[in-house]
C-alpha cells in the first residue's frame, strides 16, 4: 500500500510503486483532469504540482511521490489559481482544451515564483507545454492578464 496525498486528502493505493503518477491519478483515483499526451515528459499535458513544483506526472512514479503533497487541476485553490483560470476564461484561450489543464498548472507555477513575467520568462516557463491547437498567443496574453490581477 502506498499513501498519496492528493488535493488535500490522503489515500491508500494498492498499486505497483513503479506506476507513473499519471496513471495512478487517472486510472486508480479517477482524477481525469490530468491528461496523457506523450508519456515521455515532452508535452506537459500531465503537469501536476508536487510540493509546489510543476512536475510531469507521466514520468514520475507513485513510489517517488508517496507522502508528498500533490495538487491536480481538480484541487486548485488560492489567489494565483483563481487569477489564472479567470484570465483563461476571459480571453477564451481554449480550443480543443486538452492541453489546458497542463498549461494552467505550469502558468500557476510560473506566476507563483514570478509575479510579473516578461515574454522571455513566459517562453522559458511555458516552453515545455505543447498546445497542438496553437493557442500560444492567448496563453501569453492570459498570463500577462493574470499578472495584472495579482499586482
Amino acid at each position: 500500500m502506498i499513501t498519496l496525498k492528493v488535493n488535500g486528502t490522503s489515500q491508500e493505493l494498492d498499486v505497483n510503486p513503479d506506476m507513473p503518477l499519471l496513471w495512478a491519478l487517472r486510472d486508480t483515483l479517477n482524477l481525469t483532469g490530468t491528461k496523457f499526451g506523450c508519456g515521455v515528459a515532452q508535452c506537459g499535458a500531465c503537469t501536476v504540482h508536487v510540493d509546489g513544483q510543476a512536475v510531469r506526472s507521466c514520468t514520475i512514479t507513485v513510489g517517488q511521490v508517496a507522502g508528498r503533497t500533490i495538487t491536480t487541476i481538480e484541487g486548485l485553490s488560492g489567489k494565483v489559481a483563481d487569477a489564472v483560470t479567470k484570465a483563461w476564461q476571459q480571453l477564451d484561450v481554449v480550443q480543443c482544451g486538452y492541453c489546458q489543464s497542463g498549461q494552467i498548472m505550469s502558468a500557476i507555477k510560473l506566476l507563483t515564483i514570478n509575479k510579473k513575467p516578461t515574454n522571455k520568462e513566459i517562453d522559458a516557463g511555458m516552453g515545455g507545454n505543447i498546445c497542438r491547437c496553437g493557442t500560444y498567443v492567448r496563453i501569453r496574453q492570459a498570463i500577462h492578464e493574470a499578472a495584472k490581477t495579482l499586482a
Binding site: R26, T32, E74, W88, D92, G97, Y98
Partner: peptide, 27 residues
C-alpha cells in the same frame, strides 16, 4: 461571445473519450 466550453475546459471538467470509465472496463 464567450465560448460555451471555456469553463469546463479550464477546470478539468470537460470530458474527453480518454476520461470515460465503465464498470469492469479493460484498457
Amino acid at each position: 461571445l464567450p465560448r460555451l466550453d471555456s469553463l469546463d475546459k479550464t477546470t478539468g471538467k470537460a470530458v474527453y473519450a480518454l476520461d470515460i470509465r465503465r464498470p469492469g472496463m479493460l484498457t
